[in-house]
């Protein structure tokens, strides 16, 4: 039995990285420190997370494959959970694959006011590519990287949903 260990290390990747060691299906260490966190359900949605210093009330927003979102104190935390082996493998594979085309999705539902540049245009990181109007606010959707606009998937006056693909930016070679 090579895979079924009694302790297993996981990496949780989100805004910040957290490592968790699981022993006998229970959380044993967090960030290499012995964990004393206890979790108990409060009701159908909420959990009481008893930490060393403080207790928090949290809830699970979504769980899909190995992506988990939780909410605590009005803040959302989204993690991708990988086993140690898988995260090492991914690091190796992503090194091989090189820079990726960046897909930019609508951060919120709204209406496209205008695309400021066309396909093929070169844009700098942070430069606005289109304007999305929602809640009477015009929001600039900017390029995440220096690159070239590979494709634009929406047009002016189109209503878009949250997370709908707006455009793709190809890194400059």
């Amino acid at each position: 039995m090579r895979l079924i260990h009694h302790t297993k290390n996981y990496t949780l990747t989100g805004e910040q990285k957290v490592t968790v060691q699981v022993k006998d299906k229970k959380i044993n260490k967090i960030n290499n420190k012995k964990s004393h966190v206890e979790i108990e359900p409060l009701n159908e949605e909420e959990f009481l997370i008893k930490g060393e210093k403080k207790s928090h009330v949290g809830e699970i927003v979504s769980l899909k494959q190995n992506e988990v979102s939780v909410m605590i104190n009005g803040n959302t935390y989204t993690f991708t959970i990988d086993t140690e082996i898988a995260s090492k493998r991914k690091a190796k594979l992503s090194k091989k694959a090189g820079p990726k085309v960046e897909k930019v999705n609508a951060p919120l539902p709204g209406e496209i006011v205008v695309a400021l540049v066309g396909e093929g245009a070169e844009v700098h990181k942070g430069e606005p590519v289109m304007i999305l109007e929602a809640m009477k606010m015009q929001n600039e959707i900017t390029s995440p990287i220096n690159g070239k606009v590979k494709s634009i998937h929406v047009k002016a006056e189109e209503t878009v949903m949250k997370d709908q693909l707006l455009f793709e930016i190809e890194p400059l070679k």
Binding site: Q16, V37, V70
Partner: peptide, 14 residues
């Protein structure tokens, strides 16, 4: 220790 609590809850859910 909110981040740790969040990670613990996410891990437990997983």
């Amino acid at each position: 220790d909110e981040l740790v609590a969040a990670a613990a809850l996410a891990m437990q859910a997983y």
